[in-house]
Design a protein around this nucleic acid. Structure first.
Lengths: 189, 189
DNA sequence: TAGATTTCGGACTAACTGGTCCATAAAAAT
DNA sequence: ATTTTTATGGACCAGTTAGTCCGAAATCTA
């Protein structure tokens, strides 16, 4: 075989994800990113192909790490408590909310980039399915209206999560955002 | 006095708004935009100052035209019908949803740009106030729960609107999104 | 008509963009 | 030890970026 790569692929990918997440895709310069993670251009192009390819890889990685962790957290404890936990996380982002990376990609790129759009949709659908499962379990346990459409409830919860993240970015008064949680929960009853 | 300007300031501003709206701020090149609207660089810098200044002007213009029109539409007819109209608009965006310009700016720029953030917040607050008025009128007319917090209901509606726009960008199944409207309306009763 | 003032077209700039290339280094296989 | 294969550093590239500058044109006032 041949020379071994000296850098940690996943570590570099996580670093790139962090920058894309914080600054967006266009505002993240390749040179700047390579400087921060300490990688040469030839190594980068050898391992990742292009800036755009790396974004797709970062998006996949986000889904299989950060998003999956959120999804698994939705499975823990009582469904209602898990949903409250999920929203408390969103409502606690400080001070100008860091939004889900899926939202960053959806708003900046999805309209013009089919490969990004497909991944964002898949991520959103995974989250929606997790909510649907939680709702179904909650319905069986009598926590939520048994005659409600679990899928529709799930979409409703996903939409509220992203909407509240947007309001966080806009810096809308936190006390105002927090009061919506009880409305959301009541809608499930 | 002196030579008159040959271009229409607001027409150029609307053109720029359209591009920022469609492609985002970073992805919109100044040269490209000036080519499209047919303006020379010196005229541009004389009238608008910088790309960033123009974005702020475009954001202000969005609020006082597009957003105000939406707000005024919320005042027409029965509050409940106006709210349904508002969400039908969002749910009808095709095919990969064009989202509110406030959301584009919030997600791409608000975290790092205070001037943008202030404007986005102001726009969101205007929308929220319009919803609050509609809710209050609806409560007086017996359309909505009279004991509900009108401000919280309004924030809830704004969040749902932006959340559904995000799901539209992600291309989440339209039938799934549409089913949330009845949940939203029921939450107000 | 002369002067003052502003706009216009477009040449120009310096910095930066993502991406290519190549000589060298390092590891494994023979 | 030589060959094969891949990784690395960094020089290099053409195109683009936002922004500056200046001579010429156009309009108003006197």
């Amino acid at each position: 075989m041949a020379r071994l790569r000296e850098f940690d692929y996943e570590q570099v990918l996580d670093g790139a994800l962090g920058l894309f997440w914080r600054d967006g895709y266009e505002a993240t310069s390749l040179d700047g990113m390579l400087g921060e993670v300490g990688l040469s251009k030839s190594s980068f192009y050898g391992a990742f192909g292009s800036k755009h390819d790396m974004l797709l890889a970062a998006l996949d990685r986000y889904i299989e790490t950060v998003l999956q962790a959120n999804i698994e957290d939705l499975r823990r404890g009582s469904p209602r408590a898990a949903i409250v936990r999920h929203f408390d996380k969103i409502l606690g982002f400080q001070p100008v909310s860091k939004t889900c990376f899926l939202q960053v990609c959806a708003v900046e790129l999805a309209a013009h980039d089919q490969l990004v759009r497909m991944r964002v949709r898949r991520g959103v659908e995974l989250l929606e399915e997790a909510f649907r499962d939680a709702i179904a379990r909650g319905q069986a346990a009598g926590e939520f209206a048994a005659d409600g459409d679990a899928r529709a409830f799930a979409t409703f919860l996903v939409a509220n999560g992203y909407g509240l993240q947007m309001l966080g970015r806009a810096n809308l008064a936190a006390h105002s955002r927090k009061k919506t949680l009880s409305i959301i929960l009541k809608a499930l009853e």
